[in-house]
């Protein structure tokens, strides 16, 4: 009986070895550079988990936590473009596929506006004793995520959005 249970116990112990780092106050900023108007919005409530044992990494944020300087833009962003009532969250589920020093490459599925696309991004992953710091910058095409900008305001919003990630995750359990 004990022999039978042994692998199970082993399995449990493997589970315990997993090194999870969690954050609930990460920052994701996006920029749209356009001739007439640069648009910037910050979300300071990004959650993230990184498991250093298997290099899995997950991000999640609420679309309506993005703050714009102009509140009307925030309204349009939620109501017309990202439709946050239908698609309240954006997630990234991926894996660190390469790590040389601090330079990391991450690959995974990014879901925005209900559309999931595979992306790859370069970034920095700084491991300290109790925390992991993640920095990254990558570009997202609005068309890929079915976000339509009416032609009348086209000049105001860039078709390619720059996304900047800054998250410090703390060791958990």
């Amino acid at each position: 009986m004990i022999k039978n249970l042994l692998p199970l116990l082993l399995l449990c112990s493997i589970n315990c070895f997993s090194q999870k780092y969690i954050s609930n106050d990460g920052e994701i900023t996006f920029f749209s550079y356009a001739p007439i108007e640069d648009i910037k919005a910050v979300n300071k409530k990004v959650s993230a988990v990184y498991n250093s044992a298997d290099d899995n990494i997950v991000f999640q944020l609420n679309i309506n936590d993005f703050n714009f300087r102009k509140k009307l833009m925030q309204t349009h962003f939620n109501e017309n473009y990202l439709e946050s009532d239908l698609y309240p969250q954006s997630t990234f589920i991926g894996k660190v596929i390469a790590l040389e020093g601090n330079k990391a490459k991450v690959k995974g599925m990014l879901t925005i506006h209900g559309v999931t696309k595979e992306i790859e991004a370069d970034g920095t992953l700084l491991k300290n004793n109790e925390s992991v710091e993640i920095l990254s910058e990558f570009k997202v095409n609005l068309v890929d995520y079915n976000i339509s900008i009416p032609t009348i305001v086209m000049y105001k919003i860039a078709e390619e959005i720059l996304i900047n990630i800054e998250i410090e995750l703390n060791y958990s359990q």
Binding site: V49, V58, Q60, I93
Partner: peptide, 9 residues
Amino acid sequence: SQDELLSLL
């Protein structure tokens, strides 16, 4: 495992 991570969030 990835979904499990997601469920933590």
